[in-house]
């Protein structure tokens, strides 16, 4: 195994230094305090600034800790912003796949549906934004669990069986989640309701952190081209949409 990454150690030292005092520090002070060349310190500070961990005062050019550090671990991304940024891609996914599209984020041990695009066949459908889905029995939930974005509450919670296909033992769920990480997408086949299924893929924000999941849902016979075998064309469309949204989220804020 490789040793510690020097630049990350240095970045951590800079953050500690800035957190240590009430005062903003100039580039020279940071470099001198840590025994770094000014160029090196500047490069690290600029990177930290890029990820909003450090802010630079416009007037004096001095540095302080950034607002993003305060929110670390509390909020990843505003769900309404996630919906707004996903709108066009979710529409395109529904148009191309012919199935309903949902976006999910974690909320208190469940999946919160933050966006819903109707199946484009003009049948009567009800908007279910705001409703909650089980983590272990939905494809959106499995993605959130697999990438550590959500966790079961409590961790040893009993896994409710919605159908005979629901994964109710921690072992089977654990294996399924490992498979999700390996494949990059999750399937839910009659695990929440008989005859129905779902496919989901992760949406990543800045730095690659999974902030939510996007998924298709519909009758299993439409999602699969054989028993337990989701259609590759749908997986491709789904993953393209997830990647497009992720690219959008990694870019500058609007």
């Amino acid at each position: 195994m490789a040793g510690p990454v020097q630049s990350i150690e240095r970045a951590a030292a800079i953050l500690r230094l800035l957190a240590g005092g009430p005062r903003r520090l100039g580039l020279g002070e940071v470099a001198a305090s840590l025994g770094l060349a000014k160029g090196t310190a500047h490069g690290i500070l600029r990177t930290l600034q890029h990820v909003d961990f450090v802010e630079q005062d416009a007037a004096t050019g001095k540095y302080q800790l950034g607002a993003a550090l305060l929110h670390l671990g509390t909020s990843y991304l505003d769900v309404n912003e996630l919906r707004s940024r996903s709108l066009n891609w979710a529409d395109a996914l529904a148009a191309r796949s012919g199935e309903a599209v949902r976006l999910g984020t974690p909320l208190e041990g469940k999946v919160l549906v933050v966006h819903h695009v109707f199946r484009p066949d003009d049948t009567l459908q009800t908007l279910d934004v705001g409703s909650l889905l089980p983590l272990h029995a939905s494809s959106l939930g499995k993605v959130l669990l697999a990438y550590g974005t959500a966790s079961l509450e409590p961790p040893d919670a009993e896994l409710e069986a919605y159908t005979r296909h629901t994964l109710v033992t921690p072992e089977r769920l654990g294996r399924a989640l490992a498979e999700v990480r390996e494949l990059g997408w999750a399937a839910e086949l009659q695990e929440m309701s008989m005859g129905e299924g779902g496919l989901a893929a992760p949406i990543r924000g800045q730095g690659g952190l999974v902030v939510g999941a996007i998924g298709l849902s519909g009758p299993v016979e439409r999602l699969c081209d054989g028993p337990g075998h989701p259609r590759p064309s749908l997986i491709t469309l789904l993953r393209e949409a997830a990647r497009a949204i992720s690219r959008d989220l990694g870019a500058a804020r609007w």
């Binding site: 505003d78 309404n80 912003e81 919906r83 707004s84 940024r85």
Partner: peptide
Amino acid sequence: ISSAPEIET
């Protein structure tokens, strides 16, 4: 707010 969609939040 820091982005327009946050108005809903």
